[in-house]
Nucleic acid binder design. Sequence first.
RNA 1: CGGGGUGUAGUGUAAUGGUAGCACGAGUCCUUUGGGAGGAUUUAGUUCGGGUUCAAAUCCCGCCACCCCGACCA
Length: 514
Amino acid sequence: MRCCSEDAATGILAEQDMAEKIFDKKNLVKRSEDFSGWYQDVVVRSGLADHSPVKGCMIFKPYSYAIWELVQKFLDAKIKANGVKNAYFPMFIPESFLQKEKEHVKGFAPELAVVTIGGGKELEEKLVVRPTSETIMYSMFAQWISSWRDLPYKVNQWCNVVRWEKRPRFFIRNIEFLWQEGHTVHATNQEAQEQVDWAIEQYKDIYRNYFAIDGIDGRKSESEKFPGADATYTFETLMPSGIALQSATSHNLGQNFAKSFNIEFLDQEGKKATPWQTSWGLSTRSLASLIMVHGDDSGLVLPPALAPIQVVIIPIIRGKEGDVEVIKRAQEIKDNDLSDLRVELDLREGYSVGWKFNEWELKGVPLRIELGPKELEQGKATLTRRMDGQKISVDLKDLKAEAGKALADIQKDLLQKSRDYLAQNTREAKDYNEFKEIMNGPKGFIKAYWCEDPECEAKIKEETKATTRCLPAGQEGLPASPAEASAKEGREKEGKCVYCGKPAKYQWIFAQAY
RNA sequence: CGGGGUGUAGUGUAAUGGUAGCACGAGUCCUUUGGGAGGAUUUAGUUCGGGUUCAAAUCCCGCCACCCCGACCA
């Protein structure tokens, strides 16, 4: 049975007061006061990750790796369902390979790690540690693809890549990170574009339905696109700091790499043709948005779909007769009623109940079940939602259904919360003054007309820190999602560039980016 | 990579040139356990490398790491 709304409301209030009091003891940096400090603190304190002895590298402790494994599980299924096969290519790439695509090498040269010595001997050709695998893969594609019958060719790999970033930040920017990179080769540009769109759709689905985070997808500007691509598509999410995070990308590589790497095939008419390529990726950076978007002053708040522990059962043990019964019952609940869920039963002795509550809150477990002698007498258990502290008293016989329902509700409510935040923090700037006011104030996403002159883009960045995030999908006849549909509504056919006042075709999304 | 800052026990802090201290944590034992329990007891530290000085956590130089700002970036 669900609490009536009044009780639920006071319950939430009481819970918040409690969180305030406990906060000092926890000594966690306050999210509301110092967002960046909170982020670093919560990542370490919740057991997600730690610094490594090597600057710029981070350690994914089991708790964050478990989340990544869940992301892998769900995304990998989607990738395979599309006919993409997993493979693994070497992490070392001959330096000359990167030189082959002019834009590509220009984009990645400053952040490469290079191996010059192997087996104690100076190497004849230096080896680059992959920053991304286009070049090594495509050198092989050139050998493997010769006929239209070989197309489309689709592979994906889950791996690590290295980019020598100067300013590391947990999950957001590390010199080594984990990701999946999908690479496909097609006979036509249209087919390649369909693959590019497909990838973005998968990422949107993963973010919305698993991460419970909404965002805006669209096309990158010329200056923001992937080096070597014809066009880059992105899914951009907004952090509570009002700063955007590029959360996944999908590139239409055109024929640029195919030409550089001599990938050719004979078409159905027996003529030599150059294929069209795509690449697309989602990295462990995604965990940063998961932490930032949902967390609060008490720690992490994980959505059920990606929580390594979905339910924690805390038996109230008092060192008296009756404990045995409580523990026995709690174990039964874990093994039988909730056997389909990821459940932790906290039987540790020597920790008070309050201590356990706080620890599991810090770790962001979505649902807590309290089971004590009082409840057991009445045949009930208390469920508590991490996201808002709402308590639900349920009959033990209904526990399986109620826990499942509560988790589904939490997943849904978190996404709604993210949607509301996105809607409230996507603002339209009619002129440059408005634009600057927003950037000096709440930040967030700004919709504004832009003439697509890179100079205006650069000036805006220089003066406000805001960069173009994307041209939202839907404006160029691409599939529209709810967020973009609302962006599209009320849009006049044309406008004037927010910076220079010249005619502008589209409203772009601007924001400061991580 | 440029500018600024920080670095003392596992963590947080004190000691401004003169005895390295406190709290939390961790270990052991006892009593507790419905929102971070109490007692007893044990434990551990000046980032690293140079220099100045009778004497350095403290002053100087350098390395490394971390944080903030900038450029770069998934």
